[in-house]
């Protein structure tokens, strides 16, 4: 069993209004060091596969067809437990 961590974020060219609102709020609370915030989603998948190579195509398909909307978002993934 593999544990795979997937991160999905809005693409850098797309305005992240939630991130902006959080930035303003934390700076308002005195955290002046925070210059930017981007919000994303984090998924942990338990994948029934022996290694990353054998699961790669399936994970890519999951990321592009389901976990992210490629029109808006980028993703990265890594195996965190094997």
């Amino acid at each position: 069993m593999l544990k795979v961590h997937v991160l999905v974020h809005l693409r850098p060219d797309i305005m992240d209004v939630q991130g902006q609102a959080i930035r303003e709020a934390v700076r308002g609370a005195g955290h002046d060091v925070v210059d930017g915030v981007r919000v994303g989603k984090s998924f942990y998948l338990d994948i029934d596969a022996r290694d990353a190579d054998s699961a790669r195509d399936e994970i890519e398909k999951l990321c592009t067809e389901t976990l992210s909307n490629p029109l808006l978002e980028d993703y990265t993934w890594e195996v965190v437990e094997q």
Binding site: I14, M15, V17, Q18, A21, N69, L71, L72
Partner: peptide, 16 residues
């Protein structure tokens, strides 16, 4: 849009 029957996507309102 998510089903691919229309172009584009919908995001949070800019005003939140």
């Amino acid at each position: 849009c998510e089903a691919g029957l229309l172009p584009g996507a919908l995001m949070k309102n800019t005003s939140l």
